[in-house]
Nucleic acid binder design. Structure first.
Lengths: 231, 231
DNA sequence: CGATTCCTTGACTGACCTCAAGTGCCGTGG
DNA sequence: CCACGGCACTTGAGGTCAGTCAAGGAATCG
């Protein structure tokens, strides 16, 4: 059998990039590829942290909720991102697939031990965690102080930067396909589905975006959108 | 001159704990002790990340704001906590002293280089960053989905756990002194000062807390407070 | 004893939520 | 080809929680 890691799709993007081929195959022996289908939850909030890993393909969300079911999305993870809570006993967030996805998981204890012996890997993980923290804190400003319009504008611009885009129908515009529906957007922005819908309608009526499909967004006036972010 | 680090008040609590005395004095040569007075800002949001360090004493806040001045507090740092953004070129948050404080700072580039050669230090930093991330994400739920009452209850319980407490006047109650005022609480919870004031009044009228002084809180009914957190 | 600063309280407003109905899209099956 | 149902999104009407604006206390300090 060929070493599954050496020809991994995210070999050079995930934290594994820090490892030599030799070390990589050592780590690989603890790993396991898993397919997750849309809607399926890989890790549950509050459970013991038994699993960590890399996203190979697909889009997943991190989320947490109140006792009465109000849900807040904490982050979106894409291919090559790291998931799970290393060096800790419990997981504080659920990880759920928003599209069909593929992940590469390790028992946490194995990963922890391996990471401690491979400073390069820990360093990659540290850099990634620092970026996640920056992002989470930027989102705190959004959730704490921004208006509904500002939240939507911030969200759309982030999506424009992170998702694959194509040219839109109108000259100079860009277009992309959201990997999730209105309810997901609402959970991410701390709004309700109706408010999200109304805000997008508002941006459409203002000529700032167009919505050629239910989940597709065409940014007609990026500058106006940037001015609407509030930051 | 005595090595300033070896008898540092946070020697065994800050990330420096990972270092041998020898390594510590090596790092110490790059460090500089600084006094910061209440209200003074050590790092500004958007500036180049030139400085990182440890808090020796005092309470500081991390914050960010919108173009029109709405401010969101992103975190509170206490003695032995780490501040600044290593391994990155810009700082995304301001660091401001809420009480008179003392910090020990390093030029970021020096610290980065030193950390890369000392995996134990990087590991400590990683664990700390992971905890900060957990905390930031817990706060996202608060900011995105919790009511004003729930936010105040969550806040007071966190303070009860992190601040030095004493026995209250009433039997079985605990008491502590907040290191900051109502406006600071409002900025932290994504509320206004008036709402904070009204909520605390509400808790007092419900017999859940007492307020023996402007900034002191006595928790009379911890259980009721916990039931009010929403999580 | 002003003057300042911080906290509290009150009356009103408004942004977003809630509840409810309506619309468009798409796949299925007659 | 069209009828149907299901689902996600949109739209509307009304309510509510927290924000805004304004005034009034209480503590602190020269």
């Amino acid at each position: 059998m060929v070493n599954a890691c050496s020809d991994c799709a995210v070999r050079d993007l995930a934290i594994c990039h820090a490892l030599t081929d030799e070390k990589l195959s050592e780590l690989g022996r603890h790993g396991r590829r898993q397919k997750i289908s849309r809607g399926q939850t890989l890790l549950w909030e509050g459970d013991d942290s038994l699993l960590v890993g890399n996203v190979i393909d697909g889009v997943l969300k991190l989320s947490t909720s109140t006792w009465d079911g109000r849900e807040q999305t904490l982050g979106i993870v894409y291919s090559s991102d790291f998931i799970g809570r290393p060096f800790g006993t419990t997981s504080n967030q659920s990880v759920t697939a928003m599209t069909d996805a593929q992940v590469c998981t390790f028992p946490r204890s194995d990963f922890d031990a391996f990471a401690r012996e491979n400073p390069g890997l820990e360093h990659k993980l540290l850099e990634r965690t620092l970026m996640d923290l920056d992002h989470a804190r930027a989102w705190m400003l959004l959730l704490g102080k921004k208006s509904a319009t500002e939240r939507i504008a911030t969200f759309l611009l982030e999506m424009a930067d992170r998702l694959p885009t194509s040219e839109g129908e109108h000259p100079g515009s860009i277009q992309f396909e959201l990997p999730f529906g209105r309810q997901d957007i609402a959970d991410l922005l701390g709004l309700t589905i109706e408010t999200v819908s109304r805000q997008i309608t508002g941006l459409r009526e203002a000529g700032i975006v167009a919505t050629p499909g239910k989940r597709s967004i065409e940014v007609l006036d990026r500058e106006a959108l940037e001015e609407s972010t509030g930051h």
